[in-house]
Nucleic acid binder design. Structure first.
Lengths: 399, 399
DNA sequence: CGTGATTAGTTCGATGAGTGAACTTAAGTC
DNA sequence: GACTTAAGTTCACTCATCGAACTAATCACG
């Protein structure tokens, strides 16, 4: 999940580049431009935008069309000269996104245009890892069967825990799993393509950063909070999800809100998760766990004192915890996901203004806060995007 | 602080690359390899390491030698065939590092081998920005005069405050400066080369990340704490200092240790700076400010109750604040700089173990803590490295 | 309805950077 | 002193991009 090179100083090249890298790079540039365009660009548009010649753009596009990475469409919208053939991300390339959650398993097949081609949601419980993953693999194969000749290019898996580079899930408290070789167990689903495993918060953040594959969302730098039973998070910088040394960046759930607060399962005290996790909010608000998401804001607006207390708790804890995060990573926009998506406008503005008071640079650049756009299955869709990201980064491997 | 035009190859390309970019890139690869090598490599060594042909390596090296970016040295150490000419970073290329601190101005001229060619330290006070910067420019010109035919390739300036991309210092509380165009005022020092302005903590962290220009230090991922009157910090990831959206990453001084703690000048409460800044420690320990650095550890070891209290305060505050940072950015190594460099081994181990208890991934990968290697002028030397970083990143511009 | 203007896309020789193999240079070895 | 070894150099070749000329398809205007 480590995507190289956020804002950086002196990068160093580990190996020399050859002429073929040049072509690889320009193929990627074309694909990226096609994905981020608002209207299907022509070969000539691409040549202008990327400052290459029409000759080069034409040749590269032809290769990508042959590989079905981009599709040609009619773009007859009048105008002077020869009508252009529009280019769109190919529908023949799909990525598979899987998600293991505490109570369900999700599968999404998404094409390069971001359209969901196939999906599957099944309930699950906190059982043995092998059993759960085998069930997930079964569902994934079912979805894969319905792809009808499209090319599967990779599999992404979102899991609620810390993942290491080799695709092992080190620890997932809410599943009770330790050291599970997720990538290995699910390898058969991907066939000869790699299975990319990452934290569900990172996958959801990827979807938030690019609502369509390769297409940047409104913000390119933000802190993403994924709140459910556990509270996770991710940092998006320059449109890329940044992972730490061991893929464990963005563990917002264990930022300290108050050192004298309640003990947390992680061994620390007063962690954010103890204030805004579903369990904590259910207890304070008196709502059943599954109704916290929708019920909280409504209850508070209706004046229910327990819901008001819960909302105040969320506001306080988030503003304290996120202020530290914003100061440390220097990113002043925050996206609230999971059950926090449903917070009402007034609460969000209240979090924002309290953050402003605590953030050093806010006088210069005010903090921004917004709810996430993704739905409650963002992690699975994001995982599919993660699978497709390999094609976007190195399309040469698929032509 | 975000380096212009240095997008790396993995990520989506904004523009196409041409054949000349290929050469630029490989020149940079050669320079990087020469800088990070333990013994001066030959052209053949470089060809092997970078997997290019001897022909290519030879041609590119010749260009770099002509431009004095690398020097040829005799490496006659016996052996069979034709003796190799060793290659070292050029001594003819120097970067100028300036630092504005609360009580002094520093100038360092450093060559590509990391040797200090010229330096100047003068006392200063918190006066008008124009006056102080003019004095600094004067000192810098004096140092520049002593360069004797070497090529000055850039100027870096370390300042104690938040800096925006355009080289303006937005706010420097301990200098009482607001919105000062540092790059503009010092432009004359750099001649036709840009003046790179950044936070002193970032500059010091750069020196910690690369003790010699282009040569990585022992750790490539760490959180760097720069403690003085103010407490700053920086995040180093993959050997690079990461800047936030607005160059304001790593503001560790304003991570919240205790929301019910003392009010901080930043508008928040219980910030780290209120516990480990020089003023706070001087007050608790009873030591005069200028003696806090050396006196604190000694006093604590000697059993002085006030020093013991101060050390306990440092230990507690750092372990709480850094735990959040480590969890959020997923980097589990910490370097303590500024007056914290002088903490005794036992205190550092105590911070480390308390961090371990609060960090989610510590069971998998224990937290590491060490004092910084740089001296109290790290920011100025780091600023010189910053100036040289442009040559390392794009040597083609200098050949 | 035909001619010209205009823009998209294609073809083809030129350019420049890396490749590979042969050649030259400067040692050490027997 | 002839042979071996390895570093460095030379030169013809490859390949991706460039530039310019060419072809294709549509609109505008008389």
């Amino acid at each position: 999940m480590v995507e190289p090179g956020s804002t950086s100083w002196g990068e160093s090249a580990p190996v020399a580049v050859r002429q073929s890298s040049l072509r690889e790079r320009n193929l990627a540039a074309i694909v990226a431009a096609v994905c981020r365009a608002d209207v299907p660009p022509s070969r000539a548009d691409l040549a202008t935008e990327l400052s290459m010649t029409r000759a080069t753009a034409g040749r590269l596009v032809d290769e990508l069309v042959a590989a079905r990475v981009v599709d040609e469409v009619d773009r007859s919208q009048g105008g002077r000269g020869r009508p252009a053939k529009g280019l769109l991300p190919g529908t023949g390339i799909v990525g598979l996104g899987l998600a293991v959650e505490t109570d369900r398993l999700l599968v999404r097949a998404v094409d390069l245009r971001g359209r969901v081609i196939g999906q599957r949601d099944v309930p699950s419980g906190p059982r043995d890892a092998e059993l759960v993953l085998d069930a997930l693999a079964h569902e994934a194969r079912e979805v894969r069967r319905g792809l009808q000749g499209r090319r599967l290019v990779g599999v992404g898996v979102a899991v609620p825990g810390i993942v290491t580079d080799d695709g092992r899930l080190r620890r997932a408290p809410n599943l009770g799993w330790n050291d599970v070789d997720v990538a290995g167990i699910l390898a058969s689903v991907g066939g000869r393509y790699p299975v990319q495993v990452a934290n569900e918060a990172d996958m959801a953040a990827l979807l938030e950063a690019q609502p369509r594959p390769g297409r940047p969302g409104p913000w390119s730098d933000f802190v993403h909070v994924s709140a459910a039973v556990g509270v996770g998070g991710a940092i998006v910088s320059g449109g890329r999800v940044v992972a730490g040394e061991h893929g464990a960046a963005g563990e917002l759930g264990h930022v300290c809100v108050d050192p004298s607060g309640p003990a947390c399962g992680c061994g620390s005290t007063g962690c954010l998760e103890q204030y805004v996790g579903i369990r904590a909010l259910a207890e304070v608000s008196g709502l059943p766990r599954e109704r916290v998401a929708e019920g909280l804001a409504a209850g508070a607006v209706a004046g229910d004192p327990r819901c008001l207390a819960a909302v105040e708790q969320v506001t306080h804890a988030l503003s304290v915890a996120l202020a530290s995060v914003v100061n440390v990573v220097g990113i002043s926009s925050v996206v609230l996901g999971g059950h926090l998506t449903a917070l009402d406008v007034a609460t969000i503005e209240s979090i924002r203004s309290r953050l402003d008071a605590r953030v050093l640079g806010s006088r210069w650049k005010p903090v921004q806060v917004r709810p996430a756009r993704g739905d409650q299955t963002a992690a699975a869709t994001g995982a599919a995007h993660r699978a497709l990201a390999d094609v976007l980064a190195r399309p040469a491997a698929w032509v």
